[in-house]
């Protein structure tokens, strides 16, 4: 949770305009190439519809989802690129017991494989189902989209954004939101009036524009509050509860043991005189 940039307008963001996506899956290929990810042996129609591979996995950090629908009696496709959302306040980073996830000042949420203990809490916590596990290995680690942090540090754009011929714009989050709002305003008939990711999970580093309502496209309805705040509202009480319970019980014990203690002191005082026949134990029911 270190190096949290407070101003998320300056972090890098993706604006993915799904109305412009042609479903070429160049982004998938570029991602595999840059991250040196193995190809998956897949079959057509193994998932819902035409998409391939069926799901993101340890070998696939991004993929284009195909949604077929009917419009004016015509079969149409909608496409939606699935990837790590690079949340402003990532749930994975907050739940990781060893802090293996970090939201960088540049924007990407990156993962330190050298720290990870493999507890998979990040997978439970992520509202978008992004972190994937190396189920094939005896000592598995987590894999996920890196936001091409290594490229961004060198002033380049992420591999998928570079490869995409039409739909992905990349820049600071403030600029991307402005651009998205401009498009919504200029061509309201083209878009469903919402920017997915602007407020979802407290704001994410990926912003989507769509033509269809979000749920029809398969976007998960996600809380607008930042996820770490849900656990923190309980966890912040921990030191206080520890002291209250500890202190309370100590005080209680002091009172409940008082009678016994007084009696023992009494006995001790008396015993100073004749110290011979005091076979006294600390308990009440001693002989």
């Amino acid at each position: 949770m270190s190096s949290l940039p407070v101003n998320f307008d300056t972090t890098k963001s993706f604006l993915i305009d799904t109305t412009k996506c042609t479903g070429c899956r160049g982004c998938q290929v570029a991602c595999k190439q840059w991250n040196q990810l193995k190809a998956e042996d897949t079959t057509f129609f193994s998932g819902e519809g035409y998409q391939n591979p069926p799901l993101m996995s340890e070998y696939t950090f991004t993929r284009v989802k195909f949604k077929d629908y009917q419009k004016d009696g015509q079969n149409e496709f909608a496409f939606y690129k699935e990837m790590c959302m690079h949340c402003n306040e990532p749930a994975c980073a907050s739940v990781c017991p060893v802090g293996a996830f970090v939201k960088t000042a540049e924007g990407p949420v990156i993962y330190d494989a050298g720290r990870c203990i493999g507890c998979r809490f990040c997978m439970i916590a992520c509202p978008f189902g992004v972190p994937k596990y190396e189920w094939s290995k005896a000592f598995p680690l987590v894999r996920k989209c890196t936001g091409c942090y290594s490229r961004i540090k060198e002033g380049m754009q992420p591999a998928c954004a570079t490869a995409c011929p039409t739909a992905i714009s990349y820049g600071t989050r403030g600029d991307m939101i402005k651009e998205a709002e401009k498009r919504l305003k200029n061509r309201p008939e083209r878009y469903h009036n919402a920017i997915y990711g602007k407020d979802e999970a407290g704001g994410t580093g990926i912003l989507y524009l769509t033509q269809q309502p979000l749920d029809e496209l398969g976007f998960k309805p996600v809380t607008k509050r930042s996820l770490p705040s849900y656990t923190w509202q309980a966890l912040r009480l921990v030191p206080g509860i520890f002291l209250t319970v500890g202190g309370g019980l100590s005080l209680l014990s002091w009172f409940t043991h008082r009678k016994e203690r007084l009696r023992r002191e009494e006995l001790f005082k008396n015993s100073k005189l004749p110290a011979e026949t005091t076979n006294v134990e600390t308990k009440e029911d001693s002989p």
């Binding site: 980073a93 060893v98 720290r115 966890l235 921990v238």
Partner: peptide, 14 residues
């Protein structure tokens, strides 16, 4: 690692 790399925001750490 849990003892070395603290993350007090994590219930799992706690």
């Amino acid at each position: 690692h849990t003892m070395v790399y603290w993350n007090v925001h994590s219930p799992m750490f706690e």
